[in-house]
Nucleic acid binder design. Structure first.
Lengths: 251, 251
DNA sequence: TAGTGGTCTAGACCACATA
DNA sequence: ATGTGGTCTAGACCACTAA
């Protein structure tokens, strides 16, 4: 019976390391403070750098850390509550919906979107690209797809400058029956990553919204939010001051 | 000017590898089929196993693959749409809400939950642990916290057997004003991972629901869903046959 | 230019499932 | 007993940021 521990210490090194770091973050560091660099941390804990990085990866996934190449690793604040659905429905572009349109084009929709819109795969649709801002930060990107049949009033309207506004204004006049959504995990593509100030491959929350009017899908929005810094909120009360998720894995 | 490519091929190996594998999955493999093992794949593509694993990690994050230790890597089907919010509100435990209660206890709530419920940190609350089933699969776990003030009718009721049912039945009689939710990314703890048949550290979607009645938070639910296999749906129409998220990073 | 995180390698051993 | 994915090491070099 002089062998390894019989039933304890079954957990991986990086897992234990993560809990140690997590505790340290709460007690010894303030939000925004920079941690020692990875080589030093690895040496301090007596592990390879790759192992240390596994722990940091998870902490970053949980939104506890923020790593920036060339700069360092800093302690992240609590996640931002981003209102996604309000109490009452609303078309995109209504009031101040905190989206900023960056581009408007007329192009064929991706296959999955074309299916949802029930338009032929090669038909062009109005495609608006928008950014979601929270203060200074860009927290999300969106592609909004609107088939021509939804806004027949602007056929032939080609003034490139104000087209986005025109399309959005046209929507406000329609009756909105509902906006079913879905949320899933994705990874940032090259474009999204650049706009969100993250590396490609970063985890994002992908929200798919189908705007229903006249018993049909009148528009589809694909929104991607930074998963590390955002907490999506539904049904009003977007500003909750308490952190709703308690990391509760025991040691 | 006889140096490396001037502006191309700036992307990491694992990223390119990922797109290659992604294409291969669509053309050469059927859902459920097992891939060659990691050592062989790495050799075939001429990269280190760690690099190959980086690509597989991302594909798994996107729900395209499923890896099981000792078994192999298989091609995953489309994500399951899991209805989280219906058209009309409802207390947990109403009708057949596809949750299965596994445990019922009376214990102090975690600090964050106690704050949301506005109860003292040391006060015990009814704590129901439940599992969300989709067919055979367990796709989510939940802890439902109900302070004693919400269900005063059962104070002193201690029959351990049917307590969960009693608490849930008591809720149905109350008026439900709203159920604001939030969704964020988390990682599975040891317990959750075991019940979800995943490894600790796997990504999960964490849904926090606050059931509001009489202008107060009457109950709080913390639900965690497998992020690899689940797509959370809101506002009816949970069964959409089309994949709403198109992986669209260009090569 | 120095220092940071990001990528990559070529190994080794471990935990787990299956036959 | 074999084969799988999971963990870990000790390096190396690259891309980026800031002084």
């Amino acid at each position: 019976m002089a062998r390894t521990r019989p039933a304890a210490a079954q957990e991986p090194k990086y897992w234990h390391l993560k809990t140690v770091l997590n505790d340290a973050l709460e007690t010894d560091f303030a939000v925004g403070e920079v941690l020692p660099n990875e080589r030093e941390l690895a040496a301090r804990f007596g592990v390879a750098r790759a192992t240390l990085r596994q722990a940091l990866d998870q902490l970053e996934l949980e939104g506890r850390l923020q790593r920036r190449r060339g700069v360092g690793t800093t302690v992240a604040g609590p996640r931002v509550g981003v209102p996604v659905a309000r109490q009452h429905h609303g078309w995109p572009g209504s009031a101040h919906d905190s989206w900023r349109t960056t581009d408007c084009a007329e192009e064929p929709a991706p296959p999955a979107v074309a299916t949802m819109l029930a338009v032929p795969a090669n038909e062009t649709v109005y495609t608006l690209r928008r950014l979601r801002m929270m203060g200074e930060q860009t927290v999300g990107t969106e592609e909004l797809y609107i088939p021509r049949r939804t806004v027949p009033g602007i056929s032939g309207f080609l003034a490139a400058g104000g087209r986005a506004r025109v399309v959005l204004r046209e929507l406000q006049g329609l009756r909105l029956q509902g906006e079913p959504r879905s949320v899933e995990l994705g990874v940032a593509g090259a474009e999204d990553a650049r706009q969100l100030d993250r590396l490609p491959g970063s985890p994002v929350l992908v929200v798919t919204t189908r705007y229903v009017s006249e018993e049909r899908v009148a528009a589809v929005a694909i929104s991607t939010y930074r998963a590390d810094t955002c907490r999506l909120t539904f049904d009003g009360s977007g500003e909750v001051e308490v952190t709703p998720y308690d990391t509760r894995q025991a040691s």
